[in-house]
Amino acid sequence: MAELSEQLARIEVDGVGKAFDSGSGDRVQALSNVDFAVDEGEFVCIVGPSGCGKTTLFRIIAGLETPTSGTVRLDGDAVTEPDMDRGMVFQEYGLFPWRTARGNVEFGLEQTDADERERARRAQEMIDLVGLDGFEDAYPSELSGGMKQRVGIARALAVDPEVLLMDEPFGSVDAQTRDMLHDELLRIWAKTEKTILFVTHDVEEAVTLADRIVVLTNGPGTVNEIVPVDLDRPRSRTDDAFGRHQERVLDLIRDG
C-alpha cells in the first residue's frame, strides 16, 4: 500500500494531551503529546499496557472527550463531538437492548433522510455483510457475545462512516470466537475499504490485524514507536516473522 503515503491522512492526532483532576486534587497527566496519523483505508492498532490512556485517546478521537492540548482532525477538520463520520464499536457492545438486531442496525439510519424501504435495504445489506442473516429479529439478550459484536459492527457501518473506531471490541468473547471475528473483520475491512482504528491491549491481536501498530507507553501515555507490520494476510501466529513483530512490540511495551 505504498501509494497511501502520498494521500491526505484520514485521521491526524496532533500533539494531543489530556490531564485530569484526580480525586485527591492533583493533576494527572493521562496523555502527553500524542502524535500519529492514519491513512485512508489503513488498519491501525493502538496497543499499550493498562493505564497508558488508550481508552482516553479513543474517547478523544471519538469526540466524547476534549483534549487539554493538541487536536484530532478527520479529513482536515477538527473533531469536537461524536458524529456519523466515526462509527464506534465498544467492548461491552453498547447495543440497545430493546431493539432487535435489525432495529439496532437501523438506529443510525433513522437519523438520516433514508426512507423506510432504503433503511431496511441498507440494514439487510449490513446484516448479510457481518453474517447475521437469520438473526434479524433476535434481541441482544438472545445473542452470544460474538453475535452481539457483529450487530455492533453492522450498526456502526450502516451509516457509512469515514472511519471505524473500535475499543477492545473482542475483549469480552472467548478465544475461538475472537479468532473467527478477526477473520470476519479483515474480510469486512477488505470489502468496505474502511479506515479502522482499533484499540487493544493484546499484542497478538494487533499483529494479526494491523497495517501499523501505534505503541503507547505509560506515565504519561505517549507514542513510543509506530511499528509497521508488512506481513501478508492471512497471518499465521506460528510464522517466524509474526513472532518477531510480536517480540518487537512486547519489548517496546516492557522497556517503556
Partner: peptide, 22 residues
C-alpha cells in the same frame, strides 16, 4: 455515546430514542 455517534445530537431526541426506552 453510541447514539451520539449515530447522529443524535439534541436532548429531546436522546430522551425519546434512548433514555425513555432504556
Amino acid at each position: 455515546d453510541v447514539a451520539a455517534s449515530l447522529g443524535i445530537h439534541d436532548d429531546l431526541r436522546m430522551i425519546r430514542k434512548v433514555v425513555l426506552p432504556s
